[in-house]
Amino acid sequence: MPIPLYNRDGHQCLMFTDLCQEGGDVVQSNQFLIVDGDTGALIDPGGNLAYGELYLAMTRHFAPAQLSAILASHADPDIIAGLDRWMTATSSAKLYISRIWERFVPHFCKAGKTAGRIVGIPDAGQRISIGRSELIALPAHFMHSEGNFQFYDPVSRILFSGDLGASMTGGLEAQQPVGSLAALLPKMEAFHRRYMVSNKVLRLWARMARTLDIAMIVPQHGAPLKGRAVAEFIDWVEGLPCGVDLLNERDYTVPA
Results as ranks from 00 to 15, higher is better:
Y195W: 14
L204C: 13
H221Q: 15
Y195V: 07
V237E: 00
E232D: 08
P177G: 02
F191I: 05
L240K: 04
F151Y: 04
F151E: 00
F233Q: 07
T169I: 13
V155S: 08
G171R: 00
R194T: 12
A231R: 08
L204V: 14
M216S: 10
H192D: 05
S167T: 08
F160K: 00
M188L: 15
P219V: 10
V244F: 13
P154H: 03
H221S: 12
G222I: 05
Y152E: 04
A209S: 10
Y195F: 15
V197D: 04
P224L: 09
L172R: 01
L225D: 05
L172V: 07
Q150A: 12
G171V: 07
M216E: 06
Q220C: 13
L184V: 11
G227A: 14
V244Q: 04
R157S: 02
P224E: 09
R207E: 15
S161G: 05
M196A: 09
D153W: 03
L184R: 03
A183M: 12
V237L: 04
L225T: 09
D213Y: 04
H221C: 10
H192F: 08
Q176N: 10
S156Y: 06
L212P: 12
L240R: 03
V155F: 09
R157Q: 05
Y195H: 11
H192I: 01
Y152N: 03
V178I: 14
D163V: 02
I217R: 01
A190C: 11
M168G: 07
Q220L: 07
V155A: 14
G170A: 11
G227L: 08
K200M: 12
C242S: 06
L164T: 02
